[in-house]
């Protein structure tokens, strides 16, 4: 009985934040929330931070020798999510993207060649003293997964590649006015310096067996180029609209073409940059 009463009182103190409990959980949470808001405000003064998201449309070329020697092409659609933070010297970004595509070769479309591409990238770049400080250099950790499915090939229809790598990158960024709106222009180029690559299946049918490769540049080649412009939105002093084009190419050739995969992805995405604090 004593225990029950004590427990009830404790619960009341914790839940209500009444005069009994000046340091109750409710008050603690409120104070913590206000503190975070203050921190965010201070951070917002120091950094420009944006949450980014939007749809993307694209075009892909895929050649995987384990499936067929042909190059399959077609349209893709997907989305793009990200986070950018600018400080006086540093720029960091987190990017997630996914796209689904329906491909074919020549006029052989409609046999069910689909790809699902998903990617993750976290990179940090620093301003240099070159080019009037418009040039930033840095590196990122990147993971890209390509799931290819081709129903027409029945038992051999599924192939998957996962490439994780360190990507050195260079970014040229400048501010201009575009149609009277202050805008950020940037061009970014990166490549995989060293990659971990995992392919399923290892040889033909057995999806339980994958093959792993560790490859420096030259063994596994991946290049990504981005070109973007992001003017401030007319009705907002902080948020931005972005039009971005990206080209992502990777190529891997091993064992005299037995394991050869080449893909190129063109993407146009329309993103909204939401200023955060």
């Amino acid at each position: 009985m004593k225990l029950k009463t004590t427990f009830t009182l404790l619960l009341l103190v914790l839940c209500t934040g009444s005069t009994w409990g000046q340091d109750s959980t409710g008050n603690f949470a409120t104070r913590w929330w206000h503190k975070q808001q203050l921190k965010s405000e201070a951070r917002a003064l120091k950094y420009d931070t944006y949450r980014i998201g939007g749809p993307s449309l694209g075009f892909a070329d895929v050649q995987d020798s384990k499936m067929a020697p042909n190059i399959y092409s077609g349209a893709t659609a997907g989305f793009h999510l990200g986070w950018h933070e600018y400080s006086e010297k540093w720029f960091s970004q987190l990017m997630l993207e996914a796209a689904f595509g329906s491909l074919g070769f020549q006029d052989n479309h409609g046999k069910g060649y689909t790809l699902f591409r998903s990617g993750f990238n976290y990179s940090i770049l620093r301003k240099t003293n070159w080019m009037r400080q418009h040039l930033r250099l840095g590196a990122g950790l990147d993971a890209l997964n390509y799931l290819k499915s081709y129903n027409y090939l029945q038992n051999s229809s599924l192939n998957n590649d996962l490439a994780v790598g360190i990507m050195p990158m260079a970014m040229y960024q400048a501010g201009h006015n575009l149609l009277g709106r202050p805008s950020i222009f940037y061009a970014k180029a990166s490549f995989n310096a060293f990659s971990f690559l995992m392919r399923y299946p290892k040889y033909n049918l057995n999806l339980n067996q994958g093959e792993i490769f560790w490859q420096p540049v030259g063994g596994f080649n991946r290049v990504r180029i981005e070109l973007a412009v992001s003017p401030k939105i007319k009705w907002s002093q902080e948020n931005r609209f972005e039009l971005k084009y990206s080209w992502d190419f990777y190529s891997f050739n091993e064992k005299q073409n037995l394991v050869a995969v080449h893909t190129a992805q063109h993407n146009i995405s329309i993103n909204w940059w939401f200023k955060t604090r």
């Binding site: 190059i71 040229y172 180029i225 080209w247 190529s251």
Partner: peptide, 20 residues
């Protein structure tokens, strides 16, 4: 930048294996 981009992206099939 635009020229480099155009060059690279328009010739991506050169980097792929020859299609029989």
């Amino acid at each position: 930048i635009i020229c480099t981009l155009a060059m690279l992206t328009s010739c991506e099939r050169l980097f792929m294996d020859e299609v029989p």
